[in-house]
Simulated assay, not measured.
Amino acid sequence: MHIRRALIVDTESVYELIDMYAVQGQLLHRTRQSIYEHLQCFYVAVDDVKRIMGVASLHILDRDLAEIRSLVVLPGMALKGIGRALVDALVKEATILGIPRVIALTYQDGFFEKCGFVKINKETLSQKIWKDCLHCSKYNNCDEIAMQIMV
Rank of each mutant, 00 (worst) to 15 (best):
L74D: 11
P75A: 05
P75S: 09
G76Y: 13
G76K: 06
M77K: 14
L79H: 13
L79P: 01
L79Y: 11
K80T: 13
K80Q: 13
K80N: 04
G81Y: 03
I82Q: 09
I82A: 09
I82H: 09
I82K: 01
G83F: 02
G83V: 14
R84D: 14
R84T: 15
R84C: 09
A85W: 01
A85Q: 09
A85R: 06
A85H: 06
L86P: 07
L86S: 06
V87Q: 03
D88C: 08
A89R: 13
A89I: 11
L90V: 13
V91W: 10
K92S: 15
K92P: 04
E93R: 15
E93F: 03
E93Q: 15
E93A: 14
A94G: 01
A94N: 03
A94E: 11
T95K: 15
T95Q: 12
I96P: 00
I96K: 05
L97T: 06
L97H: 08
L97V: 09
G98E: 04
G98H: 06
G98W: 12
I99D: 00
I99N: 01
I99M: 03
R101N: 04
R101T: 06
V102W: 05
V102G: 01
I103G: 01
I103S: 00
I103E: 03
I103Q: 00
A104C: 10
A104N: 02
L105R: 05
Y107I: 14
Y107G: 12
Q108K: 13
Q108W: 07
Q108M: 06
Q108T: 14
D109F: 12
D109E: 13
D109M: 03
G110L: 13
F111V: 08
F112I: 07
F112M: 02
F112D: 02
E113T: 12
E113F: 10
E113K: 15
K114N: 13
K114I: 10
K114F: 11
C115V: 08
C115S: 07
C115P: 05
F117S: 01
F117R: 08
V118G: 00
V118R: 08
K119C: 09
I120L: 02
N121H: 03
K122A: 03
K122W: 02
K122V: 05
E123D: 12
E123T: 08
T124Q: 02
L125V: 06
L125Y: 07
Q127W: 02
Q127P: 14
K128A: 00
K128W: 12
K128Q: 10
K128N: 00
K128E: 11
I129V: 03
I129H: 01
W130S: 09
K131W: 13
K131F: 06
K131P: 07
K131H: 14
K131G: 03
D132P: 02
D132N: 04
D132I: 07
C133I: 03
C133Y: 00
C133K: 03
L134Q: 10
L134D: 04
H135K: 12
H135E: 14
H135Q: 08
C136T: 01
C136K: 03
S137E: 14
S137W: 12
S137R: 11
S137K: 15
K138C: 07
Y139G: 01
Y139C: 02
N140L: 14
N140W: 04
N141K: 11
N141E: 15
N141G: 01
N141I: 11
C142N: 05
D143K: 14
D143S: 11
D143H: 15
